[in-house]
């Protein structure tokens, strides 16, 4: 009887410790990966430097679309920009920029200095529309296919590895 109790308690404790041990090695940074596989919402985004709105559904005309949220005040955006320029040379991929809570003049200077990789550039000065894409800080980048399905979501600046991954996906 005593032994049975002992074994039960020990097994429960072991279970607890194993899970806690595994949790130690988990990355704690929250990424909205749950959005992968979902279709993007129907949203109208204002053009950056002209009146009128861009309907995000129009990207079904492109094979692959990379939706990039950036701002001139954001340091990491500066870091990842060269990767965007590199990716923009790819004919299979169109990059759509969303200028996030930014000052127009600063943003234009930023592009002048760093190059403009964006096929279409839109803006979200209040950041409210970006909520529809699950954006909570920039830079964030979303890879979308022809069927408007989200294939990949990158929180934080794109790395070399991410660029290679994107290139692999769009080759197919």
């Amino acid at each position: 009887m005593k032994k049975k109790y002992l074994v039960t308690i020990y097994s429960i404790a072991i279970f607890f410790f194993v899970v806690l041990y595994l949790s130690l090695n988990k990355n704690n940074i929250y990424t909205t990966q749950e959005n992968i596989g979902k279709k993007i919402s129907v949203i109208q985004l204002n053009y950056f430097d002209k009146p009128g709105e861009f309907n995000i559904q129009e990207i079904s005309n492109f094979n692959f679309t990379l939706l990039n949220f950036w701002a001139s005040w954001c340091g990491p955006c500066r870091k990842e920009h060269k990767h965007l320029v590199e990716l923009s040379r790819n004919s299979n991929l169109k990059i759509i920029g969303v200028n996030f809570k930014d000052d127009k003049k600063n943003a234009m200077e930023f592009l002048k200095e760093m190059g403009n990789p964006f096929f279409i550039l839109t803006k979200d000065p209040e950041g409210k529309k970006s909520v529809n894409f699950g954006i909570y800080g920039i830079p964030e980048t979303i890879l979308i296919n022809k069927d408007l399905k989200i294939l990949k979501k990158y929180v934080g600046p794109l790395s070399d590895k991410d660029v290679r991954e994107i290139q692999r996906i769009i080759k197919k």
Binding site: L6, I9, Y10, A13, F17, L20, Y21, L24
Partner: peptide, 14 residues
């Protein structure tokens, strides 16, 4: 701390 905790719990149960 986890190893310490495990040691402590197992030996006190024992």
């Amino acid at each position: 701390i986890l190893s310490f905790l495990a040691l402590m719990v197992f030996s006190s149960i024992f």
